[in-house]
Design a protein around this nucleic acid. Structure first.
Lengths: 124, 124
DNA sequence: CAGGCCGGATTACATACGTAGTCTCAAATG
DNA sequence: CATTTGAGACTACGTATGTAATCCGGCCTG
C-alpha cells in the first residue's frame, strides 16, 4: 500500500464516512474544516487517484469518488507501523505506556475491561 | 516539540538506549543496521541538534551526544497523535480494532488483563 | 455551434525528509 | 609549530508533502 499523507487521509476519512461523493461534496466536506481552497482539495484528490487509493467514475448521481482502500486496512497499517516502531509490535506496551503516564481515561479502562471479558468469552 | 522524522528517531533510540555516546559510537550503533554511511548519520545528528532534540558536549569520555527529549515524551506524542487521528484520541478503540482484526496476541491479552487488574487495584 | 463547466493533468513554490559528500574551523597530536 | 582529526555547517539531489493556481480536453447546455 502506498503511503497516504495526513492531508490525503482527511479526504479518505470523508469518503469512508460517506461514499460515493461528488467532487463538490468532497470539497465541501474537507475544505472549510481544514482551511483548504478547492484547488488544494483537487490536488489531494489527484494524488489519491494516482496512488489508486480512490477511484472516480460517472454514476447515477453524476461524477463521484469512492475509496479503494478500506479504512480498517489503513488503520491497521498505520497502527501496526507505530507499534512496530515504538512498542516492539505489540499492543499491551502501548496501553501500559498510557497507564504509566496517566493518560488512560476511566472510560478507556471500562471499555478495555469489557473488551478483555469479551475476548475471553469468545475463546470458550 | 518539533517533529522528529523516522530516520532521526533511530538516532534518538540509540541515545535513549545508551547515553551519552560519542559520534563514533552513534555511527556504529545506527549505521550498519540501517545501511547508512557515516555522512548520513552525521546529517541526521546535525538536524537533531538544530531541533534541540539532542545536545553535544565535551565530556570525560570526549565529545558526546545525549538526548534532550525523554523517550516517554516522544512516545506519548507520537502515540497520542495517532490516537487523535484515527481513534478519537482514545486507547480502547485501538485495542478493539486489533481484537476485531485478529491482531491481538494471547500474550497481549494476558498482559492487558494484568494491567487492568493493576489499574483497578491502584484505584483502591 | 460556441461557450461554459468540470475533472484531471500540469505547474509552482516552499518545507521536510532520505541519503550522502564536501568544506571549514577548532582542537588535538606528533 | 605543522599536521591531522573531528564536529558541524553547508551543499547536493531526489522524493514526499502542503497549499494552491492554471491549463487542457471532453462534455453539456443554450
Amino acid at each position: 500500500m502506498q503511503q497516504i499523507s495526513e492531508a490525503e487521509s482527511r479526504i479518505m476519512e470523508a469518503l469512508w464516512r460517506k461514499s460515493p461523493l461528488t467532487p463538490e461534496q468532497v470539497i465541501a466536506a474537507v475544505g472549510p474544516e481544514n482551511g483548504w481552497a478547492p484547488a488544494t482539495v483537487k490536488t489531494l484528490i489527484t494524488r489519491l487517484l494516482k496512488k489508486k487509493a480512490i477511484a472516480g467514475a460517472r454514476e447515477a448521481d453524476g461524477y463521484c469518488y469512492r475509496p479503494l482502500i478500506a479504512r480498517a486496512a489503513y488503520v491497521q497499517s498505520e497502527s501496526q507501523g507505530l507499534l512496530d516502531r515504538l512498542f516492539k509490535g505489540e499492543v499491551a506496551p502501548l496501553v501500559a505506556h498510557f497507564a504509566e503516564n496517566r493518560r488512560l481515561s476511566s472510560k478507556d479502562v471500562k471499555q478495555l475491561k469489557a473488551l478483555i471479558a469479551k475476548i475471553e468469552e469468545d475463546k470458550k
